[in-house]
Write a protein that binds this DNA or RNA. Sequence first.
DNA 1: GTCTATACCCCGATAGAC
DNA 2: GTCTATCGGGGTATAGAC
Lengths: 199, 199
Amino acid sequence: MAGPRGEYRKSAERRAQILEAASTVFARTGYSASSVNEIARVVGISQTGVLHHFAGGKPALLQAVLEQRDARAEDRLSGRHGREFLAGLVAISRAQADQRGLVQLYRLLAAEATDPAHPAHEYFSTRFRRIADAVTQAYREVADAGGLRPGLDPRTAALRTLAMTEGLELLWLQGFEVDMAGDIADFLDAHLTDPLARG
Amino acid sequence: MAGPRGEYRKSAERRAQILEAASTVFARTGYSASSVNEIARVVGISQTGVLHHFAGGKPALLQAVLEQRDARAEDRLSGRHGREFLAGLVAISRAQADQRGLVQLYRLLAAEATDPAHPAHEYFSTRFRRIADAVTQAYREVADAGGLRPGLDPRTAALRTLAMTEGLELLWLQGFEVDMAGDIADFLDAHLTDPLARG
DNA sequence: GTCTATACCCCGATAGAC
DNA sequence: GTCTATCGGGGTATAGAC
């Protein structure tokens, strides 16, 4: 199980360092206004040093940052259905309170990417739709089991849940003292016949 | 009631043109990534021509754009209290559906301005807090009149209302077909003993 | 009021030495 | 793997002519 040695290992570590630096720099000033040079400065190497590790330049850096986060986050919900899935949303919210930089990064990039010319435009639009569909599906499963309050439409409930989640995140970033996880749990409970278990 | 003539009038018109161009350019690419040059190109004059009218440079342009919008929006709520104020929130949401560019501008700037070094940082943080306080006050007035459902705290209700408003705006910008005004009205009604009048 | 010209800075990318 | 040097482009801002 020994990892790569010598030059290879050094390269992998550099890549990781660069990725982390890119993440914090993008989070602070967004994609367009950030520079490879500044990322390099954070790492402590030259601009060309960074480009050596990411041949595709700045867009490649962005893509790598996004992929890294997705890989870490997606399995938190995979395989969960109905009420379990909804409970997973609460868990994710709770975890985000410790990742301010990452949340900020996503918020800023998502806003920038509204422009169709932005390199991450496609990424965000499909990602958002995928999430909305997954939440809709979860509500549908809850409804089939008789756990959804009467008169509620799964799709509408999903969009409102998403809106509340994103909105609370926004307020939290703005510096308001909101209990994201608690508020989302309350909001979900308002849709269900039986409340979710609290963690 | 005749306006200014001759040179003065020409100047005022130019300023208005520049402001409008700045608004659309900022909305498309954000503040940091926009250039005075591009704004000038949209207007059809040179870069120095723009700077002639806005001595403070790019930051002055940004400030002017923000002030212009506030001036137009604030009186929509001034003098209204309690239920009337809440109904005003719904009206504002309805109006925003026709102002995609402006909404986009605010969303992007607010995200950028999370950075304390951003020229609009202070503006957004005080603005957001002012809105939150105003909504809290409105809920308090409703509560005093016995119109708030029992067990609800005005401040918490206000923050959740704000979160829902912002979140719906976000989803709408992302391309989802959401009825912002209708959903907000529903959300408000869930807090009140009597539903608001629908427009 | 608007222009051209210009000074000076930072950007991303490439070539080539070590 | 990392560097310096360099190219071409674009940014803000100022000086001064018309």
